[in-house]
Design a protein around this nucleic acid. Structure first.
Length: 494
RNA sequence: GGUCGAGUGACCGAGUGGCUAGGUAGAGGUCUGCAAAACCUUGUACAGCGGUUCGAAUCCGCUCUCGACCUCCA
């Protein structure tokens, strides 16, 4: 059985019931990175968001094929130079070497953020044949024209035939048709400013080039996503995702290419993640308002006061809905760090604590309501922040039982077990957060700590507080915090 | 200039007509040799002005502010 979800469709600007094209199965395509540079933190937010969406869809019982591409050709710079070859010249590397390097870096970062690999991760350069075929199809249907060896999409024709160009991004067709920007490359070659390149004839110095019926050249940006989504998910699939800023022109053009080549739009539902801001402003390298993942993890940035671990950053991202803009500030990160640690501590208790409880308790119904509520929040357009509030309610109950603030007869044994396994499963499997303090030397340290605590217990029985406090303070210096409670002394890494 | 979106308490951030999340910080308390943790209680919140309604943070209008896109961008 699959859960019934409702998801916000950018195309209709409304939440819609998620009805798979094939029952029980979902095809999801997400626009991946262009690998000509180190991965941007904003990229990370998008892919972390879609990772949770992917994981939840699986959890909800769907069989999902998740395709996320690697774009390693096709982006034009202001001067018309391909992004990949630009990177190559700067680094004195072959274009594919550049792609390899940054693809590797991207994968590493995705692993650091603890995301699942997509089912298929196709590369644009590996699908030149499919892209040429699609250009053929678009030409055959009359929605493209050839100019000096390059091929352009004919937007006025497309619009005139009643196709919905501009629907996704809210563009007004008349505006697009009368657009008069003059700073676009190849302006002279294009019949109309809003037309875009499907195939570009390579100049002499352009390194990335392939044979085609029209010229030795390379595919336009946009095209690889149309070609690869069609190849792996079919002409018609369920979900297409990406960052908000890709709506126009990238996704709009993708739709045009698909409609132009096969007569209908690629995806049923379009999901867009919102932007990550830094101190209320868009991240931008030129004005210094930017922070990279490594800077965030090391604390080497003027924008933050200390280092924040990857899981803290991920937790921080999850406190906001994927469709809302999220503002990174040092204060917000600090708050997230404390919340994250609290959650990890509760998870530890859920895993280890085994209280003696009656068969049923007064709180059982309440616990069930919280759990049901978390599912409902996730079913409602993946409302992770709302679900998280439920997780913290459970956390309160778990901590109360453990510390004896809540009488044990309040919670039934089954409820306790269900609550603990639910919270562990949800945090580990859906949010995919993990405790970063679990080192391999955990056993050794554990043994040492048992010994120290035992020795200190004797000292404390003799009420030698000076010695006892000295041990506690010294351990604190090492990053270990002692907590003297009724049932004895506990410790954790602070 | 055009298009779209947003303005929630000290900070972050959910919430779309009555039931007024959650995290962090603050205050008070329980516990404790002390401390920390944990738990309990608590706060002046819905940009402004009008309007619709028995009732609005939530709907409508105007104003102000901010952001994104319009050009490579997750």
């Amino acid at each position: 059985m699959t859960r019934k979800l409702s998801i916000y469709n950018s195309l209709s600007r409304e939440k819609e019931a998620l009805v798979p094209i094939t029952e029980g199965r979902l095809g999801m395509y997400v626009c991946g990175p262009t690998v000509y540079n180190d991965v941007h933190l904003g990229n990370c937010r998008t892919f972390v968001s879609f990772d949770i969406i992917y994981r939840y869809l699986l959890k909800a019982g769907y069989k999902v094929r998740y395709v996320r591409n690697i774009t390693d050709v096709g982006h034009l710079l202001d001067d018309g130079e391909d992004r990949m070859s630009k990177g190559a010249r700067l680094d004195q590397l072959e274009p594919m070497e550049v792609a390899q390097k940054y693809t590797h870096g991207f994968h590493e970062m995705m692993q650091i953020f603890n995301t699942l690999s997509p089912s298929i991760e196709p590369r644009a350069t590996g699908h030149i044949i499919e892209q040429i075929k699609m250009v053929h199809d678009i030409l055959d249907r009359g929605y493209a024209y050839i100019k000096n060896g390059s091929v352009y999409f004919d937007t006025p024709k497309f619009i005139k035939d009643g196709h919905p160009y501009g629907k996704l991004s809210g563009r007004i067709v008349e505006d697009l048709l009368t657009e008069t920007r003059d700073n676009l490359k190849n302006q002279d070659e294009k019949n109309h400013p809003s037309d875009f390149a499907l195939w570009i004839k390579a100049t002499e110095e352009h390194i990335m080039r392939w044979e085609s019926p029209w010229s030795v050249g390379f595919p336009g940006w946009h095209l690889e996503c149309s070609a690869m989504s069609t190849k792996y998910l079919g002409e018609n699939f369920d979900i297409h995702g990406g960052g908000n800023d890709l709506k126009f022109p990238h996704h709009e053009n993708e739709i045009a290419q698909n409609v132009g080549s096969c007569g209908h739009a690629p995806a049923k539902y379009w999901l867009h993640t919102n932007m990550l801001l830094l101190n209320g402003k868009k991240m931008s390298k030129s004005d210094g308002n930017t922070i990279s993942p490594p800077e965030l993890f090391s604390g080497q940035s003027e924008h933050i006061s200390k280092a924040y671990s990857p899981m803290v950053v991920k937790f921080f991202m999850m406190q906001a809905h994927y469709r809302s803009p999220l503002d990174i500030t040092d204060d917000a990160l600090q708050a997230a760090e404390k919340g994250f640690k609290r959650l990890m501590e509760t998870l530890r208790i859920a895993q280890e604590h085994q209280p003696t409880l009656p068969a049923t308790g007064n709180k059982d119904l309440e616990i069930q309501k919280i759990i049901d509520g978390i599912w409902a929040n996730m079913d409602d357009d993946f409302n992770v922040p709302n679900a998280l509030s439920g997780i913290f309610e459970l956390s309160g109950i778990i901590n109360s039982i453990k510390d004896g603030h809540l009488k044990s007869e309040e919670v039934g044994d089954n409820s306790w077990k269900e609550m603990c396994s639910f919270i562990l499963d949800f945090v580990h499997q859906v949010m995919a957060l993990k405790n970063e303090n679990e080192e391999s030397d955990v056993k050794t340290v554990g043994g040492l700590m048992d010994l120290i605590i035992d020795l200190r217990k004797d000292i404390r029985e003799k009420k030698d507080w000076a010695a006892s406090d000295k041990i506690r303070d010294a351990l604190l210096e090492l990053g270990i915090q002692l907590k003297d409670g009724k049932a004895g002394t506990e410790w954790n890494r602070s």
